[in-house]
Amino acid sequence: MNVVPLEPRHRADWDRLYAGYAEFYGVAQTPEMRDRVWSWLHDPAHESRGLVAEDEAGRAIGLAHFRPFARPLSATTGGYLDDLFVDPQMRGKRVADALIAAIAEEGRRRGWSVIRWITAEDNHRARATYDRVAKLTPWRTYDIPL
């Protein structure tokens, strides 16, 4: 397995993986929505970036999207992991660990103070990985739909 920045050659695999991610969370997602996110990930002016984990054949088997975020209280910048998804057939092979480690390494290069993410309370399989590689925080998340 190799973790690399998302490239145009990954588009078909990325579409498959990102559609699977949306399905997992029960989010209606259209091809137009995926086109928009894909464009963000390749726009140097946009903050979002993407990584994929590839198998030996160069096929993307997992994806991660991340971006910087300001942390005013500590006067630092952190990294936010927006999306992480691993092909269901590749789970249990530490693909998520490799993607998270690559984002952490990128954060170190950029001088970030933390890598942060959220997941669903009932996402038990992912939480087992997250509990192994990170520290659970006591913070709750709130949304105001606009």
Rank of each mutant, 00 (worst) to 15 (best):
W117P: 03
R34D: 01
L81A: 01
T141G: 10
W40C: 04
D143Q: 12
A53Y: 06
I103F: 05
W112E: 07
L73T: 15
T76E: 15
A126F: 01
K135Y: 08
L99K: 06
D87M: 11
D97Y: 15
W139V: 02
R49F: 02
E54P: 01
I115Q: 15
V37C: 03
A75F: 15
G50L: 01
A134V: 07
D43M: 04
S74D: 14
L73C: 12
K135S: 08
G50A: 01
H46Q: 10
V52A: 03
R125Q: 13
V52T: 02
D55T: 03
W38M: 02
W38C: 00
R108V: 14
A53I: 02
D143N: 11
G50K: 03
H46C: 01
I118T: 10
T119I: 06
T141M: 12
Q89N: 15
S39P: 03
T129C: 06
L63C: 07
F66R: 01
D97C: 15
R36F: 01
R94N: 08
R125H: 09
S74C: 12
A70L: 15
T119R: 06
V114K: 09
T77H: 11
E56W: 00
G79V: 15
R108D: 09
P44F: 00
T76R: 14
A101D: 13
V114L: 08
V114M: 09
R67C: 05
F66Y: 15
E105Q: 12
S39Q: 09
F66L: 06
A57W: 05
D83P: 09
F66Q: 04
D122A: 04
S39V: 00
K135F: 05
S39D: 02
H124A: 15
I100F: 12
F66N: 02
A104P: 13
R116Y: 13
Y130H: 03
A53F: 05
G62L: 11
R67F: 06
E54W: 02
L73R: 14
E56Y: 03
D143A: 10
T141I: 14
A126L: 04
W38K: 05
M90I: 05
V95S: 04
T119C: 11
A53L: 00
F69S: 00
I61M: 04
L51M: 01
R59K: 09
A75D: 15
D55K: 08
R132T: 11
E47H: 05
G62F: 10
A75H: 13
H124Y: 11
E106V: 13
A57K: 08
A60C: 07
S39F: 00
G50I: 02
A102Y: 13
R34K: 11
Y130A: 07
E105I: 14
P72N: 10
G58S: 03
D122S: 05
F85H: 06
A75T: 13
L99Q: 04
D143R: 10
T76M: 14
D82W: 01
A60N: 09
S39G: 12
L51I: 01
D35H: 05
R49L: 09
A45L: 09
Y130E: 02
T76G: 14
L136E: 01
A53C: 09
R125F: 07
I61C: 07
A120C: 01
